[in-house]
Amino acid sequence: MSFITNSEHGGDIYGFEKQYGRKPLDFSVNVNPEGTPEGVQKAAAATVSEASEYPDPEQRDLVNALAEKNQLETWQILPGAGASDIIYRIVFSRRPSRAVVTAPTFSEYERALKAAGSQVSHFLLREEDEFLLNNRIDELLELAEKDPEFPESGRAEMIFLCEPNNPTGRTTDKASLLRLLAACQKKKITLVVDESFLWLLDDPEKHTLLAEGGKYGQLILLRSFTKIFSMPGIRLGYGIFFRKDWRERAELCGPSWAVSTGAQAAGLAALRESEYIERYRQQNTEERAYLKEQLESLEGIPFVSSGQANYLLIRADIRLSEPLAEKGILVRDCSNYHGLDEHWIRVCVRSRQDNQMLIQAVRECLQEGGIRQR
């Protein structure tokens, strides 16, 4: 079996190189194509001399910096080895008997839930709705109340949302999020909102639920350094909690020293990179619009999502992931997402030159698949 269809996530450049004998142009991971900021690289590299010492188990400097940046108390911040680490800590600390996840969405929520023995209910987002949740909050809450697939199960105890969602790139409007949050508070359902892609939005401060958390203890937020700072190999993310006991229990559900000295230094340096973020956000907005327009103009591409982050979800009339790989381009095959099949791919928004190479390769694949272009 091809590594492309057997890979749970994007970014398997190692499997690609083993199968095709060369490195790919990687559109499968939605990280900043500008690369890791120089200051972050230097900060992480400078810690090598401290490798003989254990990291700070409480990550004091990083926690203090994150608390100050987000205007929170230090006890509310729990750093981890990427947002995925915090997902597992949350799930194992709460151990919901049943949880609801939207579909399609990031697979680690379901993976963690199943590892903890939870039943997982899937709320299917629809292409005809542009994969938006906005007008369907009541339906989501009905599924949380009762799932016919699990007739013996009671109300779900946890809901996961990815805002903006992966792989669709769409966000739920703030009013709908607040209505869901209020309902979860009333019904004692833990609402976990993954804001890992938040800083890729054009207006992140208007979308986050951070300011509302003080009134809603059932809320937990997830954040990641991975995407905006292009540092997936460093592994750094954090959770934001609004109940101290929940934060303490989540901390116990993972190993000590989960965050290396290098990762802490990289995180501190990244928090100073405000110009880098703004520069990339402007570039991403322009290139996202360009890439969407060009892909939509191709015969054989009936759907391109109106993504609001730095990736686009695409449906083609033929399977594209393997033909593109033959041409040296790696995209995220979405056939293992609930609600999608082999006709769906996700692509990162990269530089103009890279985006043009992708567009040309997609055009060629469609023509080779028998779809004549205008």
Score class of each variant (00 low, 15 high):
Cys184Asp: 09
Gln185Asn: 12
Lys186Thr: 15
Lys186His: 13
Lys187Asp: 14
Lys188Asp: 15
Lys188Cys: 05
Ile189Gly: 02
Val193Met: 08
Val193Lys: 02
Glu195Ala: 00
Ser196Asn: 14
Ser196Val: 12
Phe197Asp: 08
Phe197Trp: 12
Phe197Leu: 13
Phe197Tyr: 15
Trp199Glu: 14
Trp199Cys: 07
Trp199Val: 10
Leu201Ile: 07
Asp202His: 08
Asp202Met: 10
Asp203Pro: 00
Asp203Ala: 13
Asp203Ile: 03
Pro204Asn: 02
Pro204Lys: 01
Glu205Arg: 06
Glu205Gly: 05
His207Thr: 09
Thr208Ala: 02
Leu209Ala: 05
Leu210Glu: 06
Ala211Gly: 04
Ala211Lys: 14
Ala211Gln: 14
Ala211Thr: 11
Glu212Asn: 10
Glu212Pro: 04
Gly213Tyr: 03
Lys215His: 12
Lys215Ala: 12
Gly217Phe: 00
Gln218Asp: 11
Ile220Arg: 03
Ile220Gln: 07
Leu221Cys: 07
Ser224Cys: 08
Phe225Asn: 03
Thr226Asp: 11
Thr226Glu: 12
Thr226Tyr: 01
Ile228Asn: 00
Ser230Gln: 10
Ser230Gly: 10
Met231Ser: 13
Met231Gln: 13
Met231Lys: 10
Pro232Met: 00
Pro232His: 01
Ile234Phe: 02
Ile234Arg: 08
Arg235Phe: 11
Leu236Thr: 09
Leu236Ile: 06
Gly237Gln: 05
Tyr238Val: 00
Gly239Phe: 09
Gly239Ser: 13
Ile240Ala: 05
Phe242Thr: 01
Arg243Leu: 12
Arg243Phe: 01
Arg243Gln: 15
Asp245Ser: 14
Asp245Pro: 09
Trp246Asn: 14
